[in-house]
């Protein structure tokens, strides 16, 4: 059985315990952080396990790559702590269960992963996807399962992820372009942390787009836009992709506005938090985030994760700002139109 690879020695040597002292939700001084974190490591009860919002950020705050967040999830499950109400967890467990219903296109050795998110069916077209448009996989069978980190279900990840990876391998895929940031995080951070082998080469779609845009250099018109970026939870597991995003923005002439809640201080979309901790905290976080976006007067608010899009895009638009996905922003730069738009949802009475 797979077990979390975690170096307790690193923690023993760690002086400032940044994983805990930087947490945006649990306010801890260094002494308490050290004490409580030790309890977590020793499998004892610690209020951290209950208070955690599962924002993933401590993984990014640990300068030693020790994956403290995975440790928290591991301990939560062992102690039977429910980060969200049990029925919500049951719903997630059931709705993503692989049941043999999936879509594969005309697959090549290099393929796109839509994960289990229909948004990519709209987004992944046009010049930037010319060669790969039909080489795609979609459905529960290819769902990365990282979401269960929010629900203290490491056991489910350990059970399902190897099968998902095998499904991808069986398709003959050698290079997988992950359109969902969380898939890339799964294959490059989560799977290795549990010693789960990944027999294909995962590529983050930012890196894929960089290559494409370089190849289409003559067709790229710098956009000259200022954007507010909505950084999502899974980027906490793969903070290195932030650099790729900066390069990508650079290539298409987009300025990533400096704002309070970006990069290491980003705020998540807060919908998982709403289901876990209630509406007050979620509303407060969303308000802070939206106020901050608005304060930089962006031409667009740019989304990486479709789940953030679902949670925040309407609210962004209600404040008179324009939501757009990273892929669409790149499509604008090569003279194409935005493809993922807010459906006008009229409340039928």
């Amino acid at each position: 059985m797979y077990e979390l690879i975690f170096d307790r020695e690193k923690c023993a040597r760690c002086k400032s315990i940044p994983c805990m002292t930087k947490c945006q939700y649990i306010k801890l001084d260094t002494v308490t952080a050290k004490k409580e974190w030790q309890k977590v490591l020793d499998g004892e009860d610690s209020f951290i396990l209950e208070a955690c919002t599962t924002c993933y950020a401590c993984n990014e705050y640990c300068p030693h790559g020790n994956n403290p967040f995975y440790m928290i999830v591991d301990r939560q499950e062992k102690k039977g702590i429910l980060p969200s109400p049990r029925p919500i967890i049951t719903m997630w467990v059931n709705q993503c269960e692989p049941v043999g219903k999936f879509t594969v296109g005309l697959l090549q050795e290099k393929a796109l992963s839509y994960c289990f998110l229909a948004h990519f069916n709209v987004l992944a077209h046009g010049k930037l996807f010319e060669d790969l448009e039909y080489s795609a996989v979609y459905g529960q069978e290819f769902f990365c399962n990282a979401v269960y980190l929010h629900y203290a279900k490491t056991s489910l990840i350990k059970e399902r992820l190897p099968k998902i990876i095998e499904n991808i391998r069986k398709q003959g895929i050698k290079e997988l372009v992950c359109l969902h940031d969380e898939c890339y995080a799964t294959y490059t951070s989560l799977a290795p942390a549990y010693g789960i082998e990944v027999p294909f080469h995962p590529i983050h779609y930012y890196d894929y787009l960089i290559e494409k845009l370089k190849a289409l250099k003559d067709k790229v018109k710098p956009l000259g836009l200022k954007v507010a970026y909505q950084r999502n939870c899974s980027t906490r597991l793969i903070p290195e992709v932030d650099k790729s995003l900066d390069e990508l923005f650079n290539l298409i002439g987009v300025e990533r506005a400096v704002r309070k809640y970006d990069r290491k201080n980003a705020l998540c979309c807060a919908e998982i938090i709403r289901m876990a901790k209630g509406p007050e905290l979620a509303d407060e976080l969303q308000k802070k985030n939206l106020d901050d976006m608005q304060s930089v007067k962006p031409d667009y608010v740019v989304f990486n994760c479709p789940a953030c899009w679902d949670s925040l895009a309407t609210k962004v638009a209600e404040r008179g700002m324009k939501p757009i996905h990273v892929i669409d922003l790149c499509r604008l730069a090569v003279g194409e139109e935005q493809s993922l738009n807010l459906e006008k949802m009229e409340a039928e009475v």
Partner: peptide, 13 residues
Amino acid sequence: FEKRDGGFVSLVP
């Protein structure tokens, strides 16, 4: 909700 016996689902559009 507090007892974790029930919870609201965030509904996407």
